[in-house]
Design a protein around this nucleic acid. Sequence first.
DNA 1: GATGAATGAGGATTCATTCAT
DNA 2: GATGAATGAATCCTCATTCAT
Lengths: 198, 198, 198, 198
Amino acid sequence: MRKQPSQARSRATVDAIIQAGARILADRGWAGFTTNGVADVAGVSIGSLYQYFPDKLSLVEAIRRHHFDEVLAVMRGTRKGERSLSQQVEALVQGMIEAHSVNADLHRVLLDEVPGHDGSSRRAHDAFLAEYQDHYKAFVASYGNSDGSSNAEIVAQLLSGAVEGVIHSAARKGILSSPELKQELILMICAYLRRPDF
Amino acid sequence: MRKQPSQARSRATVDAIIQAGARILADRGWAGFTTNGVADVAGVSIGSLYQYFPDKLSLVEAIRRHHFDEVLAVMRGTRKGERSLSQQVEALVQGMIEAHSVNADLHRVLLDEVPGHDGSSRRAHDAFLAEYQDHYKAFVASYGNSDGSSNAEIVAQLLSGAVEGVIHSAARKGILSSPELKQELILMICAYLRRPDF
Amino acid sequence: MRKQPSQARSRATVDAIIQAGARILADRGWAGFTTNGVADVAGVSIGSLYQYFPDKLSLVEAIRRHHFDEVLAVMRGTRKGERSLSQQVEALVQGMIEAHSVNADLHRVLLDEVPGHDGSSRRAHDAFLAEYQDHYKAFVASYGNSDGSSNAEIVAQLLSGAVEGVIHSAARKGILSSPELKQELILMICAYLRRPDF
Amino acid sequence: MRKQPSQARSRATVDAIIQAGARILADRGWAGFTTNGVADVAGVSIGSLYQYFPDKLSLVEAIRRHHFDEVLAVMRGTRKGERSLSQQVEALVQGMIEAHSVNADLHRVLLDEVPGHDGSSRRAHDAFLAEYQDHYKAFVASYGNSDGSSNAEIVAQLLSGAVEGVIHSAARKGILSSPELKQELILMICAYLRRPDF
DNA sequence: GATGAATGAGGATTCATTCAT
DNA sequence: GATGAATGAATCCTCATTCAT
């Protein structure tokens, strides 16, 4: 950011810009994301936008940080310490569904469309992905079986990919809230983690 | 398309344009995809491009159709009629991996970046997704268990989402060819399909 | 330049752009030199301008090359081989006045206002200045006195600065064509070159 | 100026703004001279700047007046009353070099880059140039030869142009302090003023 | 049919200036 | 008096598309 907003008024402006930017990114995608459009929707002048964000990318970075914080907050809020495996899995799946329900369109655009995060922005993005993966690794670890832990990485990768994919495609079809799908996903994960040769 | 290429030369021109477009889309993404750029790489004039494609979207549609045809051809080529469940699953997974290896970058851009398919293009895209899902439905059906068939739809949805997600995230990390991941994915699907309460 | 104009029409366009640019630069200075303004005056669209010049600086470079070529052509046209010193000096002074009469405003703006010529443009500019100085060095050398030639450099520097300055300030006052001033300038140079201790 | 600074604090503010403006003008040229930038460097708010200067041009005028005052002060300080011609000429040249050494970059920018002095600013600028020329006229007059005094004007014009030009070009080449060049310049002027036919 | 010159709406960004606090 | 948030006209540049040759 170019300038720290010190007065209340400017903080409100910055917030309005970020909200409007998130809205436009979610609704129109990266190609439809124009700084003039953001300023318009935010109800501020284009000059005000550039007073706080040196360029388009730094704005999208701010939006990204904002969104990731929310998503991570939801994920961290997932209740822990369940007894049975299926309860643990249900908590995980439920948490991811909720996390994905936080502005799912924005999430997709941020991950898929927004181009080259270079430099400092890369770190923020990687930090998010790292914590994201850690969520799965922690889960796999907590399941605590005694086999070669070298597998944990792969298993976490598999689980995150599968859960992500199922939720993603369900979101696209508008059936994210389907209880049957959720139930089947839970069953699949449980079956996988319980398989005899694990 | 504006015009059907009737002569051999015209067909060669159209092919060159589609190839060049696919190349650019894969290499530079949707944001780097310009009609002038495509014409340049194709070695034809911008006027010729517009002789065959009325606008940018119709060009990207042609590219999409072209690519989806290839992908479906690979998927259809997956060997069928295996005996054991795990052999069938392995065939499925292997087929999907191969399908995703057909110009994976182009695939990702077409699915993630290229914006709103409206009108006729929508149909083509949906037809692809339908056949894609049918592949899974056929697989689930062929596993042929006798329980409530109302579940088949959900199970296909789950499987396609999970497989897609795992392959997608692996592709992003450049580990699409990891045998361990593939093995775990097969294990997960087998475990799921074999679960006692199915 | 971004593109070589191959057809006659495009060559005319490029010429019109360069002429208009030179005009605007001379009339309004670097600060008043806008690409849209140039396109307007040239009677072409802004798009055409950018078809041939990748950016504002490359346009100003083309203008510079064009102008320097003209100036050097005039300087080279100065008749050589005079007998007496004062005839030689008169030829020199006359040549410089004529060279400076070639779009004097443009000359001033190009030398004084146009910012940082980096890279390849630098070379063109330096080449001009070098030939410019060479003109003086050749003159000093041709005067052929036998004293330490290590002075030739300094003398050339002095002469070019003095002649340039006189012509420059005369141009500003609109008295470039004053015969008296020219005569005095010739006298000064002759007196200097004839001084006893030279 | 919009307002006369009456209190000490105000005067300090105005001074800071002028200093900062001169600094920026010298360092970054006219193109890099922005009111917000000046306010920043001066350590005052942009609002304060506009409290004292109604617009950008009035600020640059103040800077110009300030600088010209300094230069004239240096020129006036040149010691007078030397005996021999060459001593007088040396004093003149030395004075001009010193005057040009007072913030040479700022001087160049003010003379070459800053655009159109209209209205009241024109007067200030002309007053400076007049006094500048007067310096030379006084010098020519003091040399007091008895020939047609109608020449004095021309001779002053020639001398100021030549001295200015030599110093200017030397400054550009970074050899303003070269004693040889200075010596040659003095020689040239002496030779000119001593020429038999004067 | 093919060419490529020309077009101009649209989008990112700057900066002089105003005005509420 | 001072502050700095807000403004928006102006500028550079891109790229989809048209059309004369």
